[in-house]
Design a protein around this nucleic acid. Structure first.
Lengths: 278, 278
DNA sequence: TATACTAATGACTAAACGGTCATCTGTCAA
DNA sequence: TTGACAGATGACCGTTTAGTCATTAGTATA
């Protein structure tokens, strides 16, 4: 494990326990058994560390949600969506704690902008899911529905983080329960509150599209980072495709499937799916 | 305005903008145009200030909700409940911001216990409302419903605090929209997730009952604090009632109505309603 | 073994914090 | 005019913080 990864892991533990501001760099380095100076070889500042953490997990959850929505068949989609989300929060409960604690803290204007950005990405994916599942029946209520779904997801954190921590929740039942509620609302809502206009005001127009050059840079970086031959070759081939468009859609799709599996390639995979409109 | 009130008002503004930990006592006193020493004449510590703020607003909202639930007729209850809540959050948006920011921060074990306490009080009142509205039809789903209602209320904060702040929301429409959703869920839910057992684990048994002596102390304090003759006399008569039980229920009820109206008597009014089981 | 270079160290600095207290100020009655 | 006293002040204290940098330890090469 790289030093950077070690610091991120250990710091996340401490942040979850004590909060970001209440945790000193000294504490982190003590907990990692490294010196204070070593910390500043990996991160320029304490702020850069929390931004790296938030980026890391938000990239993971954002691309996971997008992948589920784009690959699961309709009958199971809503269930998979809820289940995957709760599983993620459960698996990365330290991150979830930090996220809930610090999400509204204006540590940094950059961080706030970043949060809004990820939020908008997830909003769009949820909307995509609603449209696929309910089609034109929810034209007037889909924004409202989207907020309901997000409200329901908040229910889990309420239950999980306010209460006895070791409580083992039945995530399968929770997901089924929320699927029922969501379907009920989708079928019957007649008085939506969140309209298209309100949604567009709140989610500022953000440019989802990435420039090809940025993608190429990111690909190059990942190619050097990865060891597994299949992943590495997939990345190289995708880079070729970006440069020369010489591959068939089926092949590109398969290559994206390959890299999607690697935890450190989920984000680039997400960006590429959007770039290729898949 | 008393110095204590001035500090609370100004500090709330700063806390809403920057967060509690990020706001120094020096900043607060500068913003109040008073000296640092003067701050410590009103509050023993910075912690005491935030506790005072949270107590002040949580007492207000808790007793407001209880009052609405206990005095509104069924047909309008759900609407009034939502509307009043959003109105409160809207009116005291600075507090709402601080509350959202700091609710999970373990500034202090005392504060956490306090938050859980107010949370449990509100949970109980919402449950009371559900039982009154839907009766035995929701025996198995009422805890689940309660969490849905709380989720829906979270929707407002999401909309209001993440987005352009000056956005004027149609609270009437919002309340109507949530009434429809709540009724839908109450009528149709068949797969509840939050059961009685789960609820009881999360909301530790808390003793709502206050000792008569505590109530008498609080009454005495309020009697000295109040100027308005009607309020003052009402308080004095209630004190008599606590000591000698010489008044009829109708009179006691009327006296509680009198003091309920005063912002600084809402909490004692709430405590008395519970004491007299009204 | 000698040299060269990177990785790592922890004492150090300057700033900021919550909280204290000797001092001062304005306002009374005598 | 004096004295007394509550209310207010801000310099000051001890502590803690993020971040720096001269120095050292470890390792690979010649």
């Amino acid at each position: 494990m790289s030093k950077k990864q070690l610091i991120m892991d250990k710091a996340l533990e401490l942040f979850a326990k004590q909060g970001f501001e209440a945790t000193s760099v000294q504490q982190i380095t003590d907990y990692c058994d490294i010196s204070k100076g070593a910390f500043y070889l990996s991160f320029k500042s304490k702020d850069e560390l929390i931004i790296a953490l938030i980026d890391h997990f938000m990239e993971a959850i954002t691309s996971d949600i997008d992948y589920i929505v784009k690959t699961t068949k309709n009958e199971e989609l809503l269930y998979s969506f809820y289940y995957m989300n709760f599983q993620f929060l459960h698996k990365h409960s330290d991150f979830a704690k930090v996220f809930i604690k610090e999400q509204t803290h204006s540590l940094n204007e950059d961080l706030l902008v970043k949060m809004r950005y990820y939020n908008a990405l997830i909003d769009n994916t949820i909307l995509l899911m609603i449209e696929r599942l309910f089609g034109e029946k929810v034209t007037d209520t889909k924004y409202d529905l989207m907020y309901c779904i997000k409200s329901f997801m908040g229910m889990y954190s309420e239950l999980f983080f306010f209460n006895s921590t070791t409580l083992d929740l039945d995530l399968d039942l929770l997901a089924h329960s929320l699927v029922e509620k969501t379907n009920l609302l989708a079928k019957h809502i007649s008085i939506p509150f969140v309209t298209k206009e309100l949604f567009q005001v709140s989610s500022q127009t953000l440019n989802l599209e990435m420039k090809r050059e940025q993608l190429l840079d990111l690909l190059e970086q990942k190619i050097n980072e990865m060891d597994e031959p299949i992943i590495k070759e997939s990345l190289i081939l995708i880079k070729q495709q970006l440069l020369h468009q010489n591959l068939s859609p089926a092949i590109v799709s398969g290559l994206l499937e390959n890299i999607q599996k690697h935890p450190h390639c989920k984000w680039i995979s997400y960006l590429l799916r959007n770039y290729f409109h898949m």
